[in-house]
Amino acid sequence: MLTKGNKDGSYVVWMSRDEYQVLPREAETFEREVAIRLMGDCGLRVQEVLDVKPKHIQRMSDGEHFELEVVAGKDTTGEYDDGKHRETWLPRDVEATINRYIQEAGIGDDDLLIPRSKRTVQYWVEDAAERAAEETGDEDYHRVSTHDLRRCWANHLLVEENVSPRIVMALGGWSSYDAIEPYLAAPTEENIISSMDSVAL
């Protein structure tokens, strides 16, 4: 886990996918797991998690994959009064987890998945991170915030999976490459070898 301190005493944390996966496993309830996975597996901001309803989940045109409509995403351009709409990738295992949660909790199509406050969701992440620190012995989990889950998602796609920056920008709701640059950690030696081994120089 890579961490960087800010002047205000907060931290920026980059997690590997394996390090991230500990957090949803440490969530105490199904609701908490869903909230964490919406951020860490779908790239939602914490405020966007609070707006998700079952009706926002759609099967894609291939009939096999799913997308999640983000109805009031953050708008940094000032172009939209009600936030910027977008569709983001919803992994099939996350869709299955959400569907089980919907069935067990009796959530209607127009009901909020996570009818909580922003601070409550932030606390859930802090609590899961505390448990992860105890489970793994890695004290850096104490520094993990909700925004680090979105950072982990973006970094994983861009650096580890080599997904096109334009696709990541569209899925995450960024308007420019400059906006996603802070989400990137330096590539690992393994990333460099796998990317450059087949390049003819």
Rank of each mutant, 00 (worst) to 15 (best):
G78W: 03
G172R: 01
E69H: 15
G9W: 08
V22Q: 07
S164D: 15
R25W: 10
H147M: 07
S10H: 12
L184E: 08
I180N: 03
P165K: 02
R100F: 08
L38V: 03
H56T: 03
T188P: 00
A170I: 11
M15P: 01
I57Y: 02
L157C: 05
G108P: 06
T188L: 02
Q47C: 10
E160M: 06
T88I: 08
H56Y: 08
D62L: 07
H85N: 09
D81R: 14
V163G: 05
A72L: 03
H65M: 07
C42S: 08
G83Y: 03
A133N: 09
E26I: 07
G106E: 05
R151K: 12
M1V: 08
N191L: 02
I36H: 00
D75W: 00
A133W: 06
L2C: 07
E104T: 12
S117F: 09
G43D: 04
V49N: 00
T76Y: 13
P115W: 11
D140F: 09
R45P: 03
H65E: 12
D148V: 03
V199C: 08
D62S: 06
A129D: 05
R151F: 00
R151G: 01
E104A: 13
L38G: 00
E31S: 14
V12M: 12
S195H: 14
A170H: 09
F30V: 07
E130W: 12
N99Q: 15
S194I: 11
A96R: 14
R45Q: 08
K53H: 04
E134W: 09
V12Q: 14
K74F: 02
S194W: 08
R32Y: 09
Y20C: 04
D41K: 11
K4H: 13
R143Q: 12
D127H: 12
A105W: 07
R37L: 11
P182K: 07
V13K: 01
Y20A: 00
E161C: 10
S117Q: 11
D62Q: 00
D178I: 11
D178E: 15
P54Q: 07
S16Q: 01
I98Q: 01
I114E: 04
P165E: 10
D51Q: 13
Y177A: 12
V159G: 00
L90Y: 04
E67S: 14
C152V: 09
D148I: 02
V34L: 04
R119W: 13
T29H: 04
M15D: 01
D138F: 00
D109I: 09
T120Q: 13
Q21T: 12
Q21N: 15
R166L: 14
D148Y: 01
E95M: 10
E126Y: 13
L2W: 10
Q122G: 15
S175K: 11
E33Q: 15
M169K: 05
I102H: 07
D197C: 10
T88P: 02
E126I: 10
Y141T: 07
E190D: 14
T88K: 03
A72F: 00
L149A: 01
R166F: 14
E79M: 13
H56M: 04
P91T: 05
E190C: 06
R59N: 03
E67P: 04
E160F: 05
A105I: 06
E33H: 06
I36P: 01
K74Y: 06
A27Y: 06
I193E: 13
